[in-house]
């Protein structure tokens, strides 16, 4: 029965959506707590033990809040943007292998599919930036679009190095190829480029220019409130999870690791990368838009190209 692709797809989607949502709530709580401690304060500790119910409480708050649509907004686009953002954020997970067999759809062009659907995220961002007829949203949306588009290029180029080493676009094959050596060692340039690009794609500090609360109030989500805001927020957060997973799968050996079951290893590594993301967020100020684009086009893309050349050369030499 599980061999029926339709059944497998539906069950996989349901399980994944549930798991990611649960992980999301936990991670947001953890991030607030962790950043709180980095900043020498407690973080949430009112709702439940250690504030563990904080996200539930916040969820209820966001659900019951008035859903305001600005008078001059384009209502249809304004409403569609969060739904689309939320849905698109889940799409790449279909091709993410959590272990050798735990993958919803083990497609041959897995990594290509992930890159393709995750680059769709720019569409709802532009929609959310343009539709409310608010200048802050517009500026935030434009920034987000500029960021996503210019950093997809170095991310994709960095992945090419991995693909060259693994000899496959299939995610499972890529992880299998890391049995002996994790790719971040032979691909150190590619790894660095990809980590920075992934940070930017997640739109978190120091690259949260699309939100930039000290400049653009709340950026491209300024006019959103209640559940719509929550969906945009969650979508952004799911991008962070995806970015961490990709870093682990492509460079940090995926589920490889001793003793523990493979899926646990993968999640542990992802968790570690998430913690790093949070740690950086609590530490650094925001870069400026022109600096960000300069880093992308003038440093990361040449570095990624160099990485491809070096990898190709090395493959030639080593046969």
């Amino acid at each position: 029965m599980m061999e029926n692709p339709l059944v497998k797809g539906i069950v996989g989607a349901a399980v994944l959506a549930a798991l990611i949502s649960a992980a999301l709530l936990f991670l947001i709580w953890l991030e607030r707590k962790f950043i709180g401690r980095l900043q020498h304060r407690y973080g949430p500790n009112r709702a439940g033990k250690f504030g563990i119910l904080q996200m539930v409480v916040d969820g209820i708050k966001l659900l019951t809040k008035e859903d305001i649509i600005p008078e001059k907004a384009d209502r249809a686009v304004f409403t569609a943007a969060p739904i689309l953002a939320f849905a698109i954020a889940f799409l790449p997970f279909a091709a993410i292998p959590f272990s050798e067999s735990l993958v919803v759809s083990n497609i041959n062009i897995g990594i290509l599919y992930i890159l393709a659907v995750s680059s769709l995220a720019v569409v709802p961002t532009i929609m959310a930036g343009w539709s409310p007829n608010n200048k802050y949203n517009l500026l935030g949306g434009m920034r987000a679009a500029a960021m996503m588009i210019s950093y997809e290029v170095p991310a994709a180029l960095a992945i090419i190095g991995v693909v060259m080493l693994a000899g496959s676009l299939n995610m499972v094959e890529i992880v299998k190829a890391q049995e002996k050596i994790w790719f971040f060692i032979p691909q150190i340039i590619g790894f660095s480029v990809f980590v920075v690009a992934a940070f930017v794609e997640t739109a978190r500090l120091p690259f949260d220019l699309s939100e930039a609360e000290s400049e653009l109030v709340q950026g491209w989500t300024t006019e959103y409130s209640g559940m719509k805001f929550a969906m945009l927020l969650f979508a952004e957060y799911i991008h962070s999870i995806l970015a961490s997973l990709l870093i682990v799968i492509l460079f940090l050996g995926g589920w490889h690791g001793p003793v523990l079951p493979p899926a646990v290893w993968l999640l542990l590594k992802t968790f570690a990368v998430m913690l790093l993301l949070m740690w950086v967020r609590a530490t650094v100020p925001r870069v400026r838009i022109n600096q960000l684009l300069n880093i992308g086009w003038k440093i990361l893309i040449p570095a990624a190209l160099l990485n491809i050349a070096l990898t190709g050369y090395a493959r030639l030499l080593l046969g």
Binding site: G36, L38, Q39, H40, W279, V280, A282, T283
Partner: peptide
Amino acid sequence: LIAKPMLITLKHLFKKPVT
């Protein structure tokens, strides 16, 4: 780069919060 600030925030992780 940002190594020193990162260490400073990390140091605070293990201190009792002041609030």
